[in-house]
């Protein structure tokens, strides 16, 4: 009895804010709401119309490219920067701080800074282009460049954050290991490949899971910078859910889309716990 009482605060929070909302969302996705507030059971009708919705597929494919563009690059950059600042050098503290700045800045401010970079004609990028007598370009207004522009910004924002995790992990590694490898004649690259990187795998996995979740979570920048446009070229799944729920007020369809997002993320979680964890060495 006492044990259950001690569990109660955590259990209440989990049930109220995680488990119940998930079940409610799944239930909600099987109904449609009438204007008068009543709900009608429609089975899988919502899912059928979702499968026929071109914007849903567009958002899903966009999200796939967005994830592919941001995750590997930001992780690689984070690792590179962490290895670089993980040694004694002048201005190390300043460098570490500089890398971490994007994480500290409020997201709305970040979006506005980048909005200025990408502004046609007098934005930073176009002014640079102007130096080479190139015409202005509407970076965020062209379907061909809007996605790469967002990807670059997100990499800039995420890499510094992930670097902190890598830096912490690197400092946990005993310097003896590197020295032992050096005595055995291993080059720095060999040591990195066979010793350091494998020992950082738990961090890499953690960072990768975070990166995937973040790539499905991005909303604020889209609201400020593109509103999903032009022609849905920058609509990501969660932004579409936000639009359906709060702009189109179709909560049943939003619930259906949310279920898809949930399934995607829980599949990834299962993959982590079921497969990857067994192949990674934990200290």
């Amino acid at each position: 009895m006492n044990a259950w009482l001690l569990l109660l605060p955590a259990a209440v929070l989990l049930v109220a804010f995680t488990h119940y909302p998930i079940l409610a969302t799944i239930r909600h996705s099987l109904f449609i709401s009438r204007r008068n507030g009543t709900e009608v059971f429609v089975g899988l009708d919502n899912y059928r119309s979702m499968a026929a919705d071109p914007i849903f597929w567009k958002a899903l494919i966009n999200n796939f490219w967005f994830a592919l563009g941001t995750i590997p690059t930001s992780i690689a950059l984070a690792l590179l920067m962490a290895v670089w600042v993980n040694r004694n050098m002048r201005g190390r503290g300043f460098l570490r701080l500089a890398y971490f700045t994007p994480t500290v800045l409020p997201m709305i401010a970040v979006a506005n800074i980048w909005l200025f970079f990408y502004t046609p004609d007098y934005g930073l990028l176009d002014q640079l282009r102007g130096l080479f007598d190139l015409a202005g370009w509407n970076w965020l207004g062209s379907p061909s460049t809007v996605m790469p522009c967002l990807i670059v910004m997100v990499i800039w924002k995420e890499a510094g954050f992930f670097m902190i995790f890598y830096l912490a992990a690197l400092q946990q590694l005993s310097p003896d290991l590197e020295e032992a490898a050096a005595v055995e004649g291993a080059s720095r690259w060999y040591t990195f490949r066979r010793i350091t990187f494998p020992l950082l795998m738990p961090t890499t996995l953690f960072v990768a899971i975070n990166a995937v979740i973040n790539s499905f979570k991005l909303v604020d920048h889209l609201v400020i910078m593109t509103k999903g446009g032009p022609n849905n070229a920058s609509t990501l799944l969660l932004y579409y859910i936000y639009e359906v729920a709060f702009t189109f007020q179709d909560s049943a369809y939003a619930a259906t889309l949310t279920v898809v997002l949930l399934v995607l993320l829980s599949t990834l979680a299962l993959l982590k716990f079921g497969y990857l964890d067994r192949r990674i060495h934990y200290q």
Binding site: D176, L177, E179
Partner: peptide, 17 residues
């Protein structure tokens, strides 16, 4: 260290975990 052709045992053993 490698060019000196030595081997070494560390206090922590420095085994690759």
């Amino acid at each position: 260290p490698a060019q000196r052709k030595i081997s070494m045992v560390f206090q922590s053993y420095a085994l690759f975990p």
